[in-house]
Every structure is written in C-alpha cells, then in structure tokens.
Design a protein around this nucleic acid. Sequence first.
DNA 1: CTGAAAGCGCTTACAG
DNA 2: CTGAAAGCGCTTACAG
Lengths: 331, 331
Amino acid sequence: MSNNITISDVAEALGVSKTTVSRAISGKGRIGAATRKRVLEYIQEHDYKPNVIARGLAQSKTFNICVVMPGDYALVDLPFFQEAIMGIQEIAGMMEYDLLLCIGSGNDMAGLRRIIQNHKVDGVVLLRTMVDDPQVTFLQERRIPFVTAGSCKYKDVKQIDHDHRSACRELTSIMLMRGMKNMALLGGSEDIVVNQTRYAGVVDAHEQFGKKINDNLVFLNLEGKAYVEKAVDDAIDRGCDCLLCMDDAVCAQAMRRLRERHIKVPQQVKVASFYNSSVLENNVPSITSLSFDSKELGARACKNLLRQIEGEETENRTLLPYEVVLKESTQ
Amino acid sequence: MSNNITISDVAEALGVSKTTVSRAISGKGRIGAATRKRVLEYIQEHDYKPNVIARGLAQSKTFNICVVMPGDYALVDLPFFQEAIMGIQEIAGMMEYDLLLCIGSGNDMAGLRRIIQNHKVDGVVLLRTMVDDPQVTFLQERRIPFVTAGSCKYKDVKQIDHDHRSACRELTSIMLMRGMKNMALLGGSEDIVVNQTRYAGVVDAHEQFGKKINDNLVFLNLEGKAYVEKAVDDAIDRGCDCLLCMDDAVCAQAMRRLRERHIKVPQQVKVASFYNSSVLENNVPSITSLSFDSKELGARACKNLLRQIEGEETENRTLLPYEVVLKESTQ
DNA sequence: CTGAAAGCGCTTACAG
DNA sequence: CTGAAAGCGCTTACAG
C-alpha cells in the first residue's frame, strides 16, 4: 500500500501523456471529456495522489501557510491561540492547505525568517502584533502575503480583529452606569496593540459620561504575579470599588489575591475582565467579561490570506462583533 | 531584496558548476578547500538560501515533521500540548526542520492521512494516543517514522513518556501513609492510555499497603462539568476524606464544586491532582500534584524521531522522571 | 578535485 | 483535443 505511484505510472498505464493526466486532475487546459473520465477513474481506483511537493516546485507554491504565535504567552492566552488556530485550520484544510507552526517572540524573528527564506509557505498569519512589529515590516519588504489576527496599527496591513474598543467601552459604560466611582484598571504590556485598544475603549466610556480616569488607579504593564498582587493591594488601599482587568491572566491573579485577602466579590469590590473567561470558568463567583469568537477570527483571517495568495483583492480591515456577559462578579 | 537567487546564479557568478556549489553547501563529496571557501563566502555575502522545496524533491525529503494534537482537548490540557510543542520545536529548529500542525481526533484521521499522502512530512509525533489508535496502525502500515509523546500500548512503537505509573503510585502512597481511609478517585476517559496508566499506579500503591481500592469511590470517564460535580457530591456523601484527581481538568472542576458547597480544603477533605497544576496555580489553597517536564518530553520525542528519519536505530521506550509537589491542599 | 547530465514529480507554454 | 519538451531548483551517480 506504499503510495509511490507517480504521474508517469498513471500516464503509462493509460497510454496517454503526463500532460493529459495533469490536465485531467487540474481541470486546466482543454481535454476530452472521455479521456478525462478515464484518467479520473483510474487515479481514483488506484488511489493516486499527486506529489504536492513536486507540484509546488513547478508552480512555486507550497500549499502551506505559516501561523506565528508568540513564545511568551501565558497559560491564559492559550485558549485564544488554540481557538484561532482551529479556525485557521478549518478553512485551510478545506482548501488543501496545511499549517506550519512558527513560534517566536516579537523580536526574535529567526524562525519566521528561516521559514520564509526556505520558501516553505505561501503566506502567513500573525496571531499577535506588537506596536512596533519587525515581523510586519519584514513580511512587507519580502512581499509575502500575510494577515494579522488581531489589531495592527499599520493601516495598510490586512487585519481581522474583534471590536475590542467598542467592547471595552460598552463594558466600562455599564459599570459606570451602575454607579462605580473608583474603577481601577489592571492591564498587561502596553507594547501589545490590543492592550492599547482596550485602554482606548475605557477612555471612550469615561468621556461619554463626562468623567476622567483616575490615574492613581491605572496599573499597566503588569508582567507577573507579584506586580498584579501589588496593584490589587494598592487599588484596594486607594478605595477602588471595581477592578477592570484588561485580560484574563491579570484577572485570574487578581481574583487569587482577593481570595487570599478574604475580600468578597462582588460585595466589597466588583470585578470584570476584558476577555473571554474560559480560563476563569471555574471561578466562584463567576466573572463578568467580554466574549469574542476567536475561532471565527482565525477562520476569517485565513480566508483573507487565502484570497491574497490567489491574487485577489481583500479588505484591509475587518471588525468582528463581541458580547458582554454579565455574571456574579458585578452584581 | 527579493531572495530569488538560485544555485545556478551562484554557479554562474563564480564560474563553477552547480555541482560544486551544491557540494560546498552540503559538505558531501570531495571539493577543494579554496573553492569551497569562495563559494561559501559568496553565498554568505549574497544571502543565498537554497530552496528547501527543491532540495526536498531531489532527496525525497521535506524537512517538516507533523505534530498531531487532538481537536477535543480541554483548556486544561493546553499547557501540556503547548509545552510539548515548544520542546519539539526547539529541537526541530536546530536541525532546520519545521512543524506541520495536524489537528484531529483519534478517529478522524482525514488530516493526518492527507498530510502523509501529500508527502508533506518526513515523520510525525503523536501527542496523545488512544488505547486502540488507528493513527498508530496507519503510520505503521505506511512505514512513516513516528513517535508518541506519551504512553502507547503498542510495544513496538517508539515512545517517550513520563513515568506516570510510578508517580501516581508514589503520590497515592504518601496519602495512604498520611492515614487516608477513604480515597476517592476522579478521572477522565478510560480510552486514553495515560488514564489507564495512572489508575494502575493507584492500584500499585494500594497493593503495596495491602489495601484495596474502594470501588464505590472510583469515578472514571468523567467527561464534563456535570459528571465531575455529581462525582464530587457522591464521594462526599460516601464519606471520602481525600479526592485524587487524575487530571487537572477534573481537579479544577472538583475544586469549584467544593468551593460552591463551602467544603473546606484541606480541613474537611484533602485534594491532590495527578498532573502539573499550572492551570490550578491561582488556586487558594494551592494544590498538591505531580509535576512533569512536558517540554523535555517533547524535546526527547523529537530527537528520537529525527534519529529515526536519519535512519538510525532508536530506543523503543524512554521513561522520564517526575516530581511530587506537596502543597496546602493535603496538609 | 570538478563537471555534464540525468533525475526528483510535477506544470505549462508551444506546436500540432 | 493531445503530446513532446523544457523547466521549477536542487542532488548525485558517473566520468574524468
């Protein structure tokens, strides 16, 4: 059952040329209906599969797309990447494309560079972009089709994103409407585009209510448990009545800290997170959060990329919807 | 800066043959030291990279390896897959191999089949095996080099695993020594090899102490929150003094249920988990668990696979060590 | 030590 | 409608 039968074998067995076989399969070029049928039946019966590598060489294509994910993500980011990849894979698979995984941080482009230089992929999807992203520049220079799943500040880059800004505005507005007076904001690295977008949403909401963010209660660039802990402590000391966590990593750690200090949620302080809380789903109390369909994001990104690869024009920017999910932590 | 320079260009520029250039790069075949130096310098300076696809075609190699992960994993399994993949990638990258991602469940082999038929990879690593695994059979038939990261019941399959059995025996023994009388066991699908192995370890420990497992307190095949909840309730009703969770998914859900019912850990019931608790790391109290180095597992698996691909002999089975990490939940 | 030539398994002008 | 031939960018016997 070793599948080493080639196009030549098929051609020979059928007494036709390789050209004919190739045409029957690809559907390109004129070919008699009868001949075509014969070829198709034969390859069906003998389970012939063209060697994609060889086809790739002839066509300068690989039928692979590269998905690059950062190597430094926390556990909490995993569901996003996983789901996005599932979405990408679903679409790619339908078009007979496979996924080449590239793991690297914003700065270390060694992996991506090698994959591109080795001509191993036809395009790439970036799963996280930094505010200044060398990967973006690199891909632009090389004229490699690519798309970012998530925000990207470069206007001419094809990008699919959730509407984080509106989502954060809406959730923040709800909290303001519920009479929160001292909202604290806990967030991660400002180098990551989406964190800036989320912040902008919070600002929007405040402006809308004619209020100002209390800078004493804004804690950004919280990288690691110790920082979150201190931020929570400071926020509480400064009399905050609501913790807005800009991602689930921060939220999980904040909840831990609150529990450690026996501070009751939502009685003493409300908590909300700006991201899907699948990571938080075993929390008691359950956490109010925003909800995004990451799989859909991946799928849309992949579709856009595939169209680019086929040489079609695609939209520069697509915004996907969101949901606000109110739960116990803000009651 | 488009990198379309080929071996012919290099040969021409240098006034040598393509053969010579090829030999200078690969290091195979006799070649004058001076010539070689000239070639190497030139390609260095002009940033020439051989087209791996073309080389692959000539050598019947792809320099890709397929990593297949199940599509149905829970959030809680993610860290394992992520870390294992990091380990694989690290080794693969060093040898200029890339990772082709294949997502499929035990039964749906469509993805793997296509990748193999399309000659897209030189070998595969299976990240989870079922007790009866069609993927294993498929790869054996096709004589594709492969390795499993994790246990596999087929003796002739190359596999790298942690010593789950000993680990579970040790942790269970510790709990028995501490005087637990009514240990409940909560676990996932028995179709997954590692779950069986873990169970065997628990049995070992009991035998060692001349005891028997109380079958009324064994809850397996707990797929989903509702099942875990019921199992926890039943276990408590039946007077268990210790919950042994066979994986972190189950443990996280069990903890949630205990918290909901205001049952104090470890005062009223002890809890331990048979896996790394990175998912549980924000738990209060902290959870006693086993600890395995999944990245190392991935790295070792990849090394074994690469050696197979090179045609070397490799060990059939490698067992990696573990640690028992005692924390608050069993104090 | 070096090179001409065939070959890896396809595709695609070009010619008929 | 069909095919012979060149080509994709490498590697590797074979010959010198």
